[in-house]
């Protein structure tokens, strides 16, 4: 009988107690579905992605959508004022969200967002990094791992040369970016555990 939804992909963390489970789900899908569609549209523009088999495109997107969304929505976690902005536009303090049930995942999201923002990437760098994140997603359901690996290597090489060109005196940036991949994987695992434990009662 949880009365709060602490994921910022909701319009607000407050749940109308008179709303049915189906209604709560429907409202969430209004924000969630367009965000996922945007990830798919982004994936389609990654050079080489559409050449993967359809099965592998779906598998990578299933495994990597959360990680891509974490990167895209990192700015919702504002480290300076310790707030999270929900998709409805309102900000909630870390303490308020903690009282509503947010736990370790929230802390880890702040940590990730702070480190990513600290790298000061421009739009092009962020976009290429996001492409690397998607093709680096879990490969357990992949049919042709060699093709995915080749695409990942190509994108990582492109990211390295872009970062080297733009930040000639900051070679650590590229390494720091690659180290974000395992961080994203553990955020994904934490999120999956919460999702599995989450139930909306009808």
């Amino acid at each position: 009988n949880r009365m709060h939804l602490v994921c910022p992909m909701n319009m607000s963390p407050h749940v109308d107690p008179h709303k049915s489970g189906h209604g709560i789900w429907e409202e969430f899908s209004h924000s969630f579905t367009p965000a996922v569609r945007e990830v798919v549209e982004f994936a389609k523009r990654i050079p080489g992605f559409r050449e993967l088999s359809q099965h592998d495109q779906v598998s990578l997107l299933k495994a990597g959508t959360f990680e891509v969304l974490v990167v895209r929505f990192a700015s919702l976690f504002e480290v300076k004022d310790r707030t999270v902005t929900f998709l409805g536009g309102k900000k909630y303090s870390v303490e308020a969200l903690r009282a509503m049930g947010a736990g370790d995942l929230q802390n880890s999201m702040f940590d990730f967002s702070e480190k990513l923002t600290g790298l000061g990437l421009n739009e092009e760098e962020m976009s290429l990094f996001t492409a690397v994140v998607l093709v680096s997603a879990d490969r357990s359901g992949i049919e042709n791992a060699n093709s995915v690996e080749a695409l990942q290597e190509t994108l990582i090489r492109a990211l390295r040369s872009l970062i080297t060109k733009n930040h000639p005196n900051e070679s650590a940036i590229f390494t720091k970016l690659l180290l974000k991949l395992p961080d994203l994987r553990s955020l994904n695992n934490m999120h999956s555990e919460q999702l599995l434990a989450f139930k909306v009662h009808p």
Partner: peptide, 27 residues
């Protein structure tokens, strides 16, 4: 659900978004 992605209907959204493009592709 044993698969968190199924819990959100993620696969269905992804497939529709991917297929949409195929349908729109000119002959």
């Amino acid at each position: 659900f044993s698969d968190p992605a199924s819990n959100l209907g993620l696969e269905d959204i992804i497939r529709k978004a991917l297929m949409g493009n195929l349908e729109e592709r000119p002959e």
